[in-house]
C-alpha cells in the first residue's frame, strides 16, 4: 500500500510537471499574449495570418490561442485575468459601451448572422411562415436579436413561435438532424447547416436584411487597465494584426488553410466563410477611421442596443482610435 501511495505521488508530481510546462510564459525572449478567439474564419483570419507569417514575432510577441464560444465569456475571462486580448462579435459590444472592456482594433462589418428555415418543414421566404414553428436560438446574442427582428418584420413576437434556447453547436446539430423547423445562428454554423441540408435550407434573413437598423461590427478588445499598463505591447500587437490583415487580403486560400488547421475543420467550410464580411486592409481601415466611417458604424451599432446601453456614451469612450492610428505609423 505504501509503495502504491509513493508511486501515485510520483505520478502526481510528474504529471503536474508535464502540464505545468505547457504554460511557460516566455519562449526565446518573446512576450506571451493570451488571445481569445471564436471558432470561425472571421475571428481567426488576420490573427493566424499574423502568426504564420511571423508578424507577431517581429513585434516580440508570442500568441497563445484560447478558444471560446461567445464574447461575454471572453470579457469575463479577461476580467478574471486569464486572457489578455479577445475577439468579440456584434452582441458583446454592448458590454464595451457599458464600460466592461475597450476596443483597440476594428475587425470587420460582418454578415454572419442569419435566420435559416427548412422548406420541408413548411418555412418559406416569407417570415410570417415562421409562426408556430420550432426555432432554435442562442439567447442574449446576435442570434436572438436577428430572430426578433425577423419575427418583428412579419408582425410576430417570440410568443408566436416555439423557441428553444441552445448554444450554437447544439443548434447546428438540431437543425441538421431535422429536430427544428428554423434557427437563428451565426457563421460558420450557418454555412455548416446550409451545406449539410442543401436546397432544403435557405436564409430567411441576415445582417444585410437589417443593415438600416444595425451594423454587425466585430472588434478586438482589452481591459482598460491592461491597456494602460501594456500600451507599448498593445500597439505592437496591433501592428502584428495589421500585417495579418494585409496578408489575408492578398492570400485568401493560404489564410483559409491555416485557419482550417487551427480549427481542425475542413478547408472548404472555412474558405466558404470568406464571404461573411468585407475584409479591409490596414490602409483601408485607417482611411475609414480618418473619414469617420468606422466611428459612424459604432454609433449605429450602439443605438441598435436600445435601452441595454446608455445611448449618450460617446464612441470614443470605449473605442481606442489612438491605438489604431499609432500602430499604423
Amino acid at each position: 500500500m505504501k509503495k502504491t501511495i509513493a508511486m501515485l505521488l510520483i505520478a502526481l508530481v510528474a504529471i503536474t510537471g508535464v502540464f505545468a510546462q505547457g504554460s511557460s510564459e516566455d519562449a526565446g525572449g518573446l512576450e506571451t499574449v493570451r488571445v481569445a478567439y471564436m471558432t470561425n474564419y472571421a475571428s481567426l483570419c488576420s490573427l493566424v495570418a499574423g502568426m504564420e507569417t511571423g508578424a507577431f514575432e517581429e513585434q516580440g510577441i508570442q500568441v497563445e490561442l484560447v478558444e471560446f464560444a461567445d464574447g461575454p465569456t471572453i470579457i469575463a475571462a479577461m476580467e478574471s485575468g486569464s486572457i489578455d486580448i479577445g475577439y468579440i462579435g456584434h452582441g458583446a459590444h454592448k458590454l464595451c459601451v457599458n464600460g466592461r472592456a475597450k476596443i483597440f482594433a476594428f475587425s470587420h462589418v460582418g454578415n454572419g448572422d442569419a435566420v435559416i428555415g427548412l422548406r420541408s418543414h413548411g418555412v418559406t421566404e416569407d417570415p410570417s411562415s415562421l409562426k408556430g414553428k420550432s426555432i432554435g436560438y442562442a439567447s442574449g446574442t446576435s442570434s436572438e436579436q436577428i430572430l426578433k427582428w425577423t419575427l418583428e418584420s412579419a408582425g410576430l413576437t417570440m410568443d408566436d413561435v416555439t423557441a428553444y434556447e441552445m448554444d450554437a453547436a447544439a443548434i447546428t446539430s438540431a437543425m441538421t438532424s431535422g429536430s427544428l423547423d428554423a434557427c437563428a445562428n451565426w457563421s460558420p454554423a450557418t454555412f455548416t447547416i446550409l451545406d449539410a441540408l442543401g436546397d432544403d435550407a435557405f436564409v430567411v434573413a441576415d445582417n444585410v436584411t437589417f443593415s438600416d437598423r444595425s451594423a454587425s461590427v466585430a472588434s478586438w478588445i482589452v481591459m482598460d487597465k491592461w491597456a494602460q499598463e501594456n500600451r507599448d505591447l498593445l500597439v505592437r500587437f496591433t501592428k502584428g494584426l495589421y500585417a495579418g490583415m494585409d496578408y489575408r487580403a492578398e492570400n485568401i486560400e493560404q489564410t483559409a488553410e491555416w485557419v482550417a488547421q487551427v480549427l481542425g475543420a475542413g478547408y472548404d467550410t472555412v474558405y466558404a466563410q470568406r464571404g461573411d464580411a468585407e475584409w479591409l486592409t490596414a490602409d483601408e481601415m485607417i482611411a475609414q477611421i480618418e473619414d469617420g466611417t468606422i466611428e459612424k458604424m459604432y454609433e449605429v451599432q450602439k443605438l441598435s442596443f436600445g435601452s441595454e446601453v446608455d445611448p449618450s456614451t460617446p464612441v470614443s469612450d470605449y473605442v481606442m482610435f489612438d491605438i489604431m492610428l499609432e500602430a499604423a505609423e
Binding site: D70, P72, T73, I75, A76, A77, E79, S80, G81, S82, I83, G91, A92, L95, R100, A138, S139, G140, T141, E165, D167
Partner: peptide, 18 residues
Amino acid sequence: MFYSSDYMFLLGMWYLSP
C-alpha cells in the same frame, strides 16, 4: 444563463479563475 453576461459579471466564471 449561458450567453447572458449578468451571471458572469455578478458571480464570475469559476473555471476561468486566475
